[in-house]
Design a protein around this nucleic acid. Structure first.
Lengths: 338, 338
DNA sequence: TCTGGCACTCGGACGGACAGAGTGCCAGGC
DNA sequence: GCCTGGCACTCTGTCCGTCCGAGTGCCAGA
């Protein structure tokens, strides 16, 4: 077990390294932090910390930098979440309040997060399956062509074209619309498959094929992989990543383009509370030198989606976590109001 | 006026520089291209080309690199558009054919363009104002809350919430829906304002306020700045940009995040035919060391939106132009079919 | 008008010297 | 037993001088 002082030394190393981006040595540490001991003592502590794998030397006769394990300990035990200041909180609220629709909320959130943290922001649209149905609409665009529109309580709208196997009369359409809405409105999307499964039986034989087609399109829309959308922003902040550029930045940009990767990343994060994945803790290789801070947000108690930031492992964890948490909270409020 | 040979020298310089990314000297030129003259002669020609501002030396005793003006001449006079090979064309078509809806078409187009050109791809969604109305739908979500859904012939769907000044009955809503559709279906969105302006007069006094509100929301949706959307991809290709990284890449990433900038960029491009903006020809400062190749695409004869790529001024213009043109053509076909 | 030759310039690579930062270790003190 | 000051050592980054090669411009001659 590490002594209290050694933990303080580790904390100091993390803080200084995050601030200066340069390996930190024993002398500089004692100068900038009042540890109450001499550099020589700190050196011993550093050697111990290195033995345990919390810090490392890029090369002999350089200072130490934290390892992923070191950051992990720092985040878990040594640092809290830095709350946003009152003016910051007001600014967040004001900025988000101006949004006119869901796309706008998400877009603003991304911008805000990117600016606050000076990192890459990722915001997932509220998941369909975790939202409740506000309304389902069916439009007849052509005799055998129907448009299906889903509207959630979070303001998300999803539409799908359905090519019907047979012409579908206006009356049948109205019938289906009414039956569908009476069954699912106000219910959770996740329950929709169960709620509509026997619906075709209520229709005439000639319409049953079309009803089934419409319903299966509806169910397809709810399949996990299809229904997830997200928005990213602040990629310009990647340029502040490190000195050894192309190598570091390239895989990150690639990862950001692969929505699947990002969704998986966010999906793996715990469902409640904030999740911090540091360096190699990220399953995706390209993100091995980045950390991901993510948290769920939602209009009520339950999370409907996640948002977070991607940044260098050398990031200001307390500040980033504070910003992410605050933004998630306000986004939840906004969604609840709308 | 430049002699034929000097133009050939310029062409050779551009080709070599694009290939090697290094300043090209007189000796290398004569070795790689059969110009039929000696290096010394080429040197004279190069001196002349430099006097005219088509090429420049990074420093004394280095080879020459083309200037923006040099690339301009190359694009205008010295190089054509390199057509895609048959297999490439097939691949494009196959890839785009798999798309299931407009979002998918746009997403696939972006990916495709980015892969073909190995640059950053930008695809604008079909403009509302240049499309025609397939259907306008009104949904009553609450007594005084209406959702407006616009559907274009290109498959684009846009929705807007409308908070009505007064409760709006189902009958009135149906009436408005019917009148609206009979006036605008099949017409161009650009004509919609004119077509609906006297519509409120047909309604009872108590509904007129709501009708006006709905209509003004409809018109707002059509305002240029609001209705333009776009998708970008291939940002990872930025890492192949140049050697002097952060400086070059940062402003480009920033520009790409500013949709307004990009839309303006595409908007400025000529309405028909392909447009190439080279280096400083781009109004936006951050893109001064990039070139933008863009072209309109559309389901019929007329362009409904633009797409293009952003890359270093040192790019393979003929190949890029060929890819952009081919992709635009196939996207147009896909839209026409749907 | 083109060519070969020649002197010149400049940047990049190489290598040695040097300063500075930081370490590990050890002997001594509290 | 733990902390401290001192010391020797190691390594990197930098500066500087040298050298080499690429490329140029110019000139005289074909």
């Amino acid at each position: 077990m590490l002594s209290e002082r050694r933990l303080q030394v580790l904390r100091a190393i993390v803080q200084d390294y995050v601030g200066t981006e340069e390996p930190v040595g024993s002398k500089a540490l004692t100068e900038r932090h009042s540890l109450g001991v001499s550099p020589a003592t700190v050196r011993n502590d550093m050697a111990a910390l290195e033995d345990e794998g919390f810090i490392a030397q890029p090369h002999t006769s350089a200072g130490r930098i934290p390892t992923d394990k070191g950051y992990r300990l720092f985040v878990d035990k040594l640092a809290g979440v830095k709350p946003m200041s009152a003016p910051e909180r007001r600014a967040i609220q004001n900025f988000l309040d101006g949004a006119v629709d869901l796309d706008d909320v998400v877009a603003r959130t991304v911008r805000l997060l990117a600016q606050l943290t000076r990192q890459v922001a990722v915001v997932q649209y509220p998941s369909l399956t975790r939202s409740t149905v506000r309304h389902v609409e069916l439009l007849s665009l052509a005799p055998a062509r129907v448009m299906l529109v889903l509207i959630t309580d979070t303001g998300r709208v999803e539409q799908r074209m359905v090519d019907c196997p047979a012409p579908f009369g206006e009356a049948s359409l109205a019938d289906l619309r009414a039956r569908l809405n009476s069954r699912v409105t106000g219910r959770r999307f996740a329950d929709v498959p169960r709620l509509v499964e026997d619906l075709p039986e209520a229709f005439d034989v000639e319409d049953r094929g079309t009803v089934s087609t419409v319903l299966s399109t509806l169910l397809e829309t709810l399949v996990e992989e299809n229904e997830e959308r997200l928005m990213i922003g602040g990629t310009a902040n990647l340029t502040r990543f490190g000195h050894d550029f192309p190598l570091t930045i390239r895989p990150v940009l690639e990862a950001l383009e692969e929505q699947v990767v990002l969704l998986k990343l966010l999906g793996e994060a715990g469902d409640s509370g904030m999740t911090v994945r540091i360096g190699h803790e990220n399953a995706y290789e390209g993100l091995n030198s980045t950390s991901v801070v993510s948290v769920g947000y939602g209009s009520g108690g339950e999370a409907v989606a996640k948002l977070g930031v991607v940044g260098p492992t050398r990031m200001d964890y307390p500040g980033t976590m504070g910003a992410v948490r605050a933004v998630a909270r306000y986004v939840g409020q906004i969604l609840a109001e709308s």
